[in-house]
Nucleic acid binder design. Structure first.
Lengths: 190, 190
DNA sequence: GCTCACATGTAATCCGTTACATGATTCT
DNA sequence: AGAATCATGTAACGGATTACATGTGAGC
C-alpha cells in the first residue's frame, strides 16, 4: 500500500465536490464514515499537505472575508489513485475493538445481576449510536435524492442495522441468562 | 483509567488458571478475543512486567527442561483490579475500522460490476472469519461443559452471528443493486 | 535433518488521538 | 458580550504492529 487510508478518505470526500477544506472533510467524516472509519485533524491536515505535494490534490487559498481557508480539489492523478484503490483486490483491513465484549468474555467472574447490568450498558451504548445515525438519515436521504449518490445512504442504513443487531443480541442474551437463573418461574401455575 | 486494556486481557486470561505464560496468553487471545480485541507479543511481554511490578500478578521461573518459561498467576490485588474493571460503569471503548465499508461508501465512483465485486470481496472476508470462528466452536463448547465457564462460548457465538449478519447484508445489498440495474428482467414472460 | 510448536523479549515504526495554540465570524 | 461555529495547524503522547533476535523440544 502506498497511500494511507486517511488519504483515501480525503480523496473520496473531495471527489463529491461538496467538500473543500480540511474542516469540511472532518465534518463530513463525523457525519458519515466516523462509525466505521474515524479521522482527526491531527491526521487530516498533515495528509492534505502530503497529498498536495504528491500532486493528487490541488489547493488554493480561498479566504472567507478575513478568515483564512484553503480549498482543495482532486487532480486527475488523485481521481485515478482513488479509482485504483476502490477497484483494487487488495486485502480489506477490518478491525473491531469492543471493550464491552471483552468484559462479557470474562463475565464468568461476575455475579448474575452484574452480568445483566453489563449487557444493559452495552445495549444502551449501541442504542445511543443507532439514534445518532438515525438522526442523520434524513439528511443522507435528501443528499441521495438530490444528486443520486446512493452509497453514503446505503452505508448509513447498514450502520443502523448493525447497531440494531448488537442491541438485539444484548436483549436476547440478557433474557437467556435471566431464564437460566430462574428456570422454575416460567410456565408454572399459580 | 489506570490500567491498559491489554492489562485486563492478561488478568482475565490468567484468572482462568488454564493459562500461565506470555505465550499461553497470546495463544488464548488468538483463539478467542482476537476478533474483538487483539494483542501482540509487543504488548503482552512488557505488560506482564508492569503488572508484576505493580503486584497484580506474580511470576515464577518454571522451565520445561532446558526451555525457559515464566509462569504467572493472579494475586489477590490483581483479582480485585479485574473485578473492579468488570463491574465498573466506566464508558466502554468501541471502535470499528472497516476498509470494505469505506470503499463501499465511495462506491458511487465505481461501475455496477465493480460494486458487486466489492461486496463479494467483503462477503468472502467475513465468511472466512466466520468459518474460523466455527472451527474453534467445538473446543469452546467442550471448555464450557468441562468447567462451566460459559461466557467465552457465548462471546464466540456472538462472533459467528456477527459475521453472518455482515455476510447477509452483503448478499442482500448485492441483490438489491443488481435489481436496480435490470429491473425489467424479473417477472417477464418468455 | 527439518519443520513446527514452545518460549521470551526488544526496537523501530506507524497510526491515531488529545491537547494546545490561534484567530475570525455569526448567532443569540 | 458571550457562545458556537468556521478554520488551520502542531506537539506530545499512547497504543499497537512488525520485524528482528534467540533458543529449546518434539515429531516426522
Amino acid at each position: 500500500m502506498e497511500l494511507s487510508k486517511t488519504a483515501y478518505v480525503i480523496l473520496g470526500m473531495l471527489r463529491s465536490g461538496r467538500v473543500h477544506s480540511g474542516y469540511d472533510i472532518k465534518a463530513a467524516v463525523e457525519s458519515s464514515t466516523r462509525f466505521f472509519w474515524a479521522a482527526s485533524y491531527g491526521q487530516i491536515y498533515p495528509e492534505l499537505g502530503k497529498l498536495e505535494a504528491a500532486g493528487l490534490i490541488e489547493g488554493v487559498d480561498d479566504p472567507q472575508g478575513e478568515r483564512r481557508r484553503r480549498a482543495y480539489r482532486l487532480t486527475s492523478a488523485g481521481e485515478r489513485a482513488l479509482q485504483d484503490w476502490l477497484g483494487a483486490g487488495s486485502p480489506l483491513h477490518f478491525e473491531l475493538r469492543h471493550e464491552g465484549l471483552l468484559r462479557f468474555f470474562f463475565a464468568d467472574a461476575l455475579g448474575p445481576e452484574q452480568r445483566i447490568e453489563l449487557l444493559r450498558t452495552i445495549r444502551a451504548e449501541h442504542e445511543r449510536v443507532r439514534d445518532q445515525l438515525q438522526a442523520i438519515e434524513p439528511a443522507a436521504r435528501a443528499g441521495c435524492d438530490a444528486d443520486g449518490i446512493s452509497h453514503p445512504l446505503r452505508t448509513l442504513e447498514f450502520g443502523i442495522a448493525y447497531q440494531d443487531f448488537i442491541v438485539d443480541w444484548c436483549e436476547e442474551t440478557a433474557r437467556r441468562i435471566g431464564e437460566e437463573q430462574q428456570p422454575a418461574t416460567t410456565g408454572r401455575p399459580a
